[in-house]
Computed example of a mutant assay.
Amino acid sequence: MTATHTPIRIMLVDDHAIVRQGLRSILERDAGIKVIAEASSRGECLALMERTTPDVLLLDLKLSTSSDTEGLDLAREVAERHPSVAILVLTTFLDEQLVLRAVQAGAKGYVVKDVDTDALVRAIHDVSRGESAFDARSAAAMVRGVRTPVPEAKPVLSPRELQVLAHLARGLSNKEIGKRLYVGETTAKFHVGNILRKLGVSSRAEAVYEATQRKLL
């Protein structure tokens, strides 16, 4: 990809220095991405966030501590303290409940570490634009992880909104949805906005989770 504007600023959070070094080397081959900071722990990340605010936090959920929830706790704190930062989980773990909990904690995307470079770069660009980004396995895991439907009436979605919702679940951008449905990107964005409003959520990832819980997908 070729940048036509200010590069997306990334903070890497992973407890393995060699992984961070490898990610930095790979990501900065894209002219539209710049790694501005690295952290190995929750505390180090939060301290860095007081001095510099990235556009995207690339986060491994499993950090080397006695707590299995440190990565999730960090995602939740960043989402609360720095809502402008898009959180993208990059991890080796594909546990169904972990994907759901990451979304609930504020993650806008979830990809596994064996994803190819192009897919990771696309995911970073997507979340930086406010889109959700899930690789196929993570999206499927999130759907499988939902077990109990919400005991409330389904929101009224138009047939077109249901079509858009199905494409949202596949992680497509507004532009891609527009192409699939033969409408403009602005129209697709309008439908997505209506879906978020009717589901009572604020992000595309939350919309997919909520819609799956309510058996709309």
Rank of each mutant, 00 (worst) to 15 (best):
A133M: 07
V146S: 01
E185C: 01
L181F: 07
F134T: 01
T148R: 11
R180W: 06
A140H: 11
A136W: 13
D135W: 09
R180S: 15
K154D: 12
A169Y: 10
V143L: 12
P151S: 03
A166V: 09
L181Y: 02
V150F: 04
K175M: 14
F134K: 01
R129Q: 12
T148H: 07
S132W: 09
T186Q: 05
R180L: 14
K175D: 15
K175V: 15
G130Y: 11
V127A: 01
S173G: 05
E176K: 11
R147P: 11
T187H: 07
L157P: 02
E161V: 07
L165N: 03
R137Q: 15
R144E: 03
R160V: 15
A133I: 10
V146W: 02
R160D: 06
A166G: 15
E131D: 13
G130N: 03
R160L: 12
S128P: 08
K154W: 02
G184H: 06
P159L: 12
E176V: 04
S158A: 04
A140E: 12
F134L: 00
G178F: 12
F134I: 06
V150I: 14
R170W: 15
H167S: 10
A141W: 02
V150P: 05
L165T: 01
F134M: 04
R129A: 14
P155G: 02
R137Y: 14
V164N: 00
L181S: 03
R144T: 08
E176Y: 07
A140C: 10
A139E: 01
T148A: 00
G145P: 13
V146L: 04
L181Q: 03
P159E: 05
E185Q: 01
T148E: 08
A169C: 14
A141T: 09
K179C: 15
V127D: 00
T187G: 00
V183N: 00
E152A: 07
R144M: 13
A169I: 15
V164D: 00
F134A: 00
L157C: 04
V164S: 02
V150Y: 07
A140S: 14
G130E: 02
A169K: 11
D135Y: 04
D135T: 01
V156Y: 14
L157G: 02
A133Y: 09
V183R: 00
A141Q: 09
A166L: 13
K154R: 07
V127E: 00
T186Y: 06
S132D: 08
E161S: 05
R180Q: 15
E161N: 04
N174H: 11
H167Y: 15
L181D: 03
S132Y: 09
G130I: 06
R180I: 10
P149K: 00
A141G: 09
D135E: 10
K175C: 12
E176W: 03
